[in-house]
Amino acid sequence: MSVLGSKVMKLSVSLALILSLSVAANIFSEDSAPPTISGGSTSELVALKAANQAFVKAFNHRDASAIAEMWDEDGDYIDETGTHYVGRDAIHDEFENYFHSSCGRKIKVHANSIRFLRPDIVLIDGTSEVDPAPEGKPVVGRFSAIRIKKDGKWLLTSVRESAEEVPSNYEHLKPLEWMIGEWVDREDSSSIYTSAVWSKNKNFILRKFKVNLKGRIVLSGTQRVGWDPIRKQIKSWTFDTDGGVAEGYWSRHGSNWVVQKVGVLQDGTRATATNTYIFNENDEDSFLWKSENRIVGNIHEPDIDQVKVVRLPPALDSK
């Protein structure tokens, strides 16, 4: 995670620790189930809500000093990276640094439980979400916090957070795992080189290709293979250096994969084709590929007969 992403995550959870203390339903996102509340009088729950509102006001004014005062004097905080902050001064500095390096963001929180361990000690567990994060997607985290009541105030005394595991489409894409690696198709004076790797969290397979003709690269591009949750089908997006783009829907037929491909050339001409990957389950180091029903504009292009594609061995260390 980048430094900024880490800061956002730490902020998202820290905010959630305080915001989650509100028992009013409108404090939480509309699609969240209400938290489980164990113990605590109505007056104490109202006081916890007031503590939440005070924090929101301090945060909106970017007041790190006011926020630090909401912690117990020797309270501590451990973020999702394991960094440990002890005492108000350290917590103040953390928020001060954040306010100097970030812009305002909105937060959604959900307290799963609010449990009074004693009349003056409460434990809160839940999740938080900051939107938008730097990359455009919400930052989600889990938190656990303890508040204690001192001199009539509910102060944070112990905060623990962890990153929420990002959902992955790996199970949908796992049947294509054989594709990971480097591949080549060589014929006389031409060759096509392809590589495939997993993206972070295995939500996509990222492929690169280049076409070499008589020692010169005449075409190259990238392809992203993912899961379409609406059609419940594997889908690919291809971009080439000639300015062409294409989408393909993948379906499995025994050990073969058929891709119905629809694309647009740089000049706006539509192109379609049916590509087939013929995979031998007893040979993970090669497959056959062919392309049929190739139409560019209104012209039917010749089919491409089966070609054999073989896996390249791992590169040897020069040492």
Score class of each variant (00 low, 15 high):
residue 280 N to Q: 06
residue 252 R to F: 06
residue 280 N to M: 04
residue 266 Q to A: 15
residue 277 Y to D: 05
residue 264 V to C: 09
residue 278 I to A: 14
residue 268 G to F: 11
residue 269 T to W: 01
residue 257 W to Y: 11
residue 252 R to K: 14
residue 246 A to I: 03
residue 242 D to Q: 13
residue 250 W to N: 00
residue 278 I to Q: 15
residue 277 Y to G: 04
residue 273 A to N: 08
residue 247 E to Q: 09
residue 253 H to L: 13
residue 258 V to C: 01
residue 241 T to Q: 13
residue 244 G to F: 04
residue 244 G to W: 04
residue 272 T to A: 07
residue 260 Q to I: 10
residue 270 R to E: 09
residue 270 R to D: 05
residue 264 V to Y: 06
residue 239 F to M: 03
residue 251 S to C: 08
residue 248 G to M: 07
residue 271 A to F: 14
residue 260 Q to Y: 10
residue 249 Y to Q: 12
residue 278 I to M: 15
residue 265 L to R: 11
residue 263 G to T: 01
residue 271 A to G: 13
residue 239 F to S: 00
residue 263 G to A: 02
residue 272 T to M: 09
residue 279 F to E: 10
residue 273 A to S: 15
residue 277 Y to V: 03
residue 261 K to P: 00
residue 278 I to K: 15
residue 280 N to P: 04
residue 245 V to L: 10
residue 257 W to N: 02
residue 247 E to R: 08
residue 264 V to F: 06
residue 264 V to D: 02
residue 275 N to P: 01
residue 267 D to A: 10
residue 240 D to P: 05
residue 244 G to H: 00
residue 276 T to V: 13
residue 280 N to R: 06
residue 245 V to Q: 09
residue 257 W to D: 04
residue 270 R to I: 09
residue 241 T to E: 15
residue 267 D to N: 15
residue 274 T to S: 08
residue 267 D to F: 06
residue 262 V to D: 13
residue 261 K to G: 01
residue 276 T to Y: 04
residue 253 H to R: 14
residue 273 A to C: 11
residue 260 Q to N: 13
residue 238 T to W: 00
residue 276 T to K: 08
residue 262 V to K: 13
residue 265 L to Q: 13
residue 251 S to F: 09
residue 256 N to S: 15
residue 259 V to E: 00
residue 279 F to G: 04
residue 257 W to M: 03
residue 267 D to H: 09
residue 242 D to R: 11
residue 258 V to H: 02
residue 259 V to L: 01
residue 254 G to M: 08
residue 243 G to K: 03
residue 280 N to K: 06
residue 241 T to R: 11
residue 248 G to L: 08
residue 260 Q to P: 00
residue 271 A to H: 12
residue 255 S to P: 08
residue 253 H to N: 15
residue 241 T to C: 14
residue 274 T to D: 08
residue 267 D to W: 07
residue 267 D to S: 09
residue 268 G to Q: 11
residue 278 I to P: 06
residue 271 A to Y: 14
residue 240 D to A: 04
residue 246 A to P: 04
residue 263 G to K: 01
residue 277 Y to M: 08
residue 252 R to W: 05
residue 239 F to I: 02
residue 278 I to V: 15
residue 249 Y to D: 12
residue 260 Q to H: 14
residue 270 R to Y: 10
residue 279 F to R: 15
residue 273 A to F: 05
residue 258 V to P: 00
residue 276 T to S: 04
residue 247 E to S: 09
residue 249 Y to T: 14
residue 242 D to Y: 12
residue 257 W to R: 03
residue 259 V to D: 01
residue 240 D to C: 04
residue 258 V to A: 03
residue 255 S to H: 11
residue 251 S to I: 14
residue 238 T to E: 01
residue 238 T to C: 00
residue 253 H to T: 13
residue 267 D to Y: 07
residue 253 H to A: 13
residue 274 T to I: 12
residue 272 T to S: 10
residue 274 T to K: 12
residue 272 T to I: 14
residue 239 F to G: 01
residue 248 G to H: 08
residue 277 Y to W: 14
